[in-house]
Design a protein around this nucleic acid. Sequence first.
DNA 1: TTGAAAGCGATACCAG
DNA 2: CTGGTATCGCTTTCAA
Lengths: 328, 328
Amino acid sequence: MATIKDVAGAAGVSVATVSRVLNDNGYVHEETRTRVMAAMEKLNYYPNEVARSLYKRESRLIGLLLPDITNPFFPQLARGAEDELNREGYRLIFGNSDEELNKELEYLQTFKQNHVAGIIAATNYPHLEEYSGIDQPVVFLDRTPEGAPSVSSDGHTGGKLAAEAIVHRSKHITLLKGPAHLPTAQDRFHGALEVLQQADVDFQIIETASFSFKDAQALAKELFAIYPETDGIIASNDIQAAAVLHEALRRGKKVPEDIQIIGYDDIPQSELLFPPLSTIKQPAYDMGKEAAKLLLSIIKKQPLAETAIQMPVMYIRRNTTRKEEKDA
Amino acid sequence: MATIKDVAGAAGVSVATVSRVLNDNGYVHEETRTRVMAAMEKLNYYPNEVARSLYKRESRLIGLLLPDITNPFFPQLARGAEDELNREGYRLIFGNSDEELNKELEYLQTFKQNHVAGIIAATNYPHLEEYSGIDQPVVFLDRTPEGAPSVSSDGHTGGKLAAEAIVHRSKHITLLKGPAHLPTAQDRFHGALEVLQQADVDFQIIETASFSFKDAQALAKELFAIYPETDGIIASNDIQAAAVLHEALRRGKKVPEDIQIIGYDDIPQSELLFPPLSTIKQPAYDMGKEAAKLLLSIIKKQPLAETAIQMPVMYIRRNTTRKEEKDA
DNA sequence: TTGAAAGCGATACCAG
DNA sequence: CTGGTATCGCTTTCAA
């Protein structure tokens, strides 16, 4: 692998000059420039990023920490971030935490040791001192610790929208309360709860331990066993909604005639369920993108208008909810 | 950020000694070791990976190139690779190519410039000279160029299994031929074709341009319009199968009574369709894992038993295929 | 058992 | 406009 020295030798100039043409700064005579370029071409030279990063004490890498890329909500966040970051020549060091503290800490450590230019983290532990005592800028995704730069979506409104979507046409509503340790899930929950409490409906709450399909399946069976009269279900994410939908159909219920179901997230697969799932859309791709933009401006030390970005959510009516009649 | 020099200073030794305790090699007196360790502790020191990589001309990073993490098949590959690699302390630089040559080349370039220890690539262009003229070891995933280390699954057998799963109980089979430029899709196709040709059934082939849900939706509509008598469909992946299933149900067909459908891949969402999708499982997570293992042994220059690993596929019977009667 | 010093491959300052 | 050189933080001889 050719180094800057080789190029310098081949072009009959000093490494300083090569560096100048490489970075296009400082003066360099047109003729020597072409000579250097020719040498680079001939030697098939490309600069060693590692050496560069060492000198600059900063790499062109960004750390991206996600709970689990296997959960369909996250790939979109990742793509949004990646696409935006690439435009500025940054690349991703990527890691899944599985929401385990020690994995998260290990990745943070990796990010620091590799002197990433910045970090985007979807974490349950934004208040870790490991985050505050960090040299690199951090943008939190899907979590909004006071004062820190973050991108999230409006879970409270989302929860309300979900409840409103079915509250007028269901009599016995079941509200699935997502994992207690996830603030985002709790925002949705409280939003929905607010609407249900103000409406004149019978409703019950079921606690759910996780977002996984396995757990959701068990939960769905339990749900119908305990509350057979349920005719409206507000799930805390789409996977859960799919499991419930599944179980409802298996029991011969008609959806949305007998029972309405609304999910949350709008993962790509929701459209592909049958019937297509009505849900609350979080703009995942755009959230990733915004997080990247925000991080980029912090890296470039640009003045920021807002540092806690909240993205809007949207009710996507598909076929697991009935068309709402004009409100009385 | 403390450097090795600071530690050396604090411990009253040379950087060489610190380096020795850091890497646990060479002789170092027990007492000085503890002194050094104490200093590291006190200064909250951690080694700079960038400097290390520069000297060693190799980082602890592995390049992972995937077509699109947004496609549910790939996150599992990624996780399999990540989990295995982490066990040895390697991390991932991750990139999506979107099957675009120039994006792929850019990522390859990034991998080289960052002196990754190795590369795992799910690519359509394994024969690029950029791959052969590369210093780092490369393992191809989901593609098997002659002679190069690779991990894939047995698409031909998979295709046969798919066809066999429905051939005896459907009379008018539609075989969806996946994207022509994807060898894996073509393997499946030919496997299935072989079975159909040998069986006494009426069948037709439909070309499909992509694996995307959008395209698959259009294709599904077309399919039923052109071949309304179809009672068995072999899709070239699960997304496609889902779209077809969707359309079948929309048209009031009963699945699997009126029409059998079989997918390919066994993405996590397949189980969550209604009815749950019968499909051919590719062990994606394990494929990622095997690719990582293979790469690791190449990096460590261990002798390899086999360099082109082929993983088995499996028929997963769920509810879009009918139980097969004992063959006559 | 330890330290001094020469790299690793770039960047940037200072002279000329 | 160009070159020499210190520097980034670490690893690894080579001597002592």
